[in-house]
């Protein structure tokens, strides 16, 4: 994990993960993630909410993600990234659009995350692409992916085409990239402020309700031949 800009965590501090699947360096995908993060942190600050941001650059985890796909277990570095997501109050997920969808690396990362790890996590989805013609990939690809993971996706998604980086303020009445960033960040900030995910205790050994180790005939208390 790189670029962690965390302040010291305390009770009430909300955790935001900014995830970028950009591959080039510097990357416009990372740039968009940073702009969204900055706007969300600013909005939360105005609400009097302290935040701690963890940045996940998937490029740095590319080998670890592939190894996890092959071996079935994450490296320590990848586990740290997964843990950050699992305990977050909000996720800013930004991918370049490749071949009509999220990048393969972006999908591979979510393929190795447990399918319950993101339950209830508010997600701001965003993407970058060469032209605005790819913008609906956010709604036909990213939105269902997070819906499957039971992570609520905020209504506003942000797509930045190359030309958007040269757009000015909305003098012609149409919202521009900064406007969309501002609106999306506001939605995320409201959801993060209400989130209690980072404060929840997670028990990896929680057994399903009604689970009885001795089966239907067994007693859950006292054990087999307990003394």
């Amino acid at each position: 994990m790189t670029g962690s800009t965390g302040t010291s965590s305390s009770a009430g501090t909300k955790r935001i993960v900014a995830l970028s699947a950009g591959l080039s360096q510097p990357s416009s995908t990372r740039l968009l993630a940073d702009r969204l993060t900055e706007a969300a942190v600013g909005d939360l600050g105005e609400r009097g909410v302290e935040t701690e941001v963890t940045v996940i650059e998937l490029r740095d985890l590319a080998h670890d993600i592939t190894n996890n796909l092959v071996t079935g277990f994450p490296s320590t570095k990848l586990q740290e990234a997964i843990d950050a997501l699992t305990g977050a109050d909000g996720l800013i997920a930004v991918t370049p659009i490749f071949t009509a969808s999220y990048s393969g690396l972006f999908k591979s990362f979510f393929d190795v995350v447990d399918n319950t790890a993101l339950t209830g996590l508010p997600v701001l989805i965003a993407a970058t692409g060469g032209t605005p013609r790819h913008s609906l990939a956010l709604d036909h690809a990213l939105r269902p992916l997070f819906s499957y993971l039971r992570a609520p996706v905020l209504p506003t998604s942000v797509f930045a085409a190359a030309e958007d980086w040269g757009s000015g303020s909305a003098d012609d009445g149409f919202p521009t990239l900064p406007d969309r960033i501002h609106r999306a960040a506001g939605e995320l900030a409201a959801a993060v402020a209400a989130s209690t995910r980072s404060g929840q205790e997670r028990d990896p050994f929680a057994l399903a309700t009604g689970f009885s180790p001795g089966g239907a005939g067994g007693s859950a208390v006292g054990g087999f031949g307990a003394q």
Binding site: F73, T76, Q79, L207, F211, P213, G214, G218, F224, G225
Partner: peptide, 30 residues
Amino acid sequence: SPEIAEQAAYYGDGFFANHIFWPKEHFQRL
């Protein structure tokens, strides 16, 4: 699966962790 560790404990049986593919921290907890 914690269910299997629970089952082993319930019967007073042994628990075998074939930890050859996973980092030790995971099995330490299990």
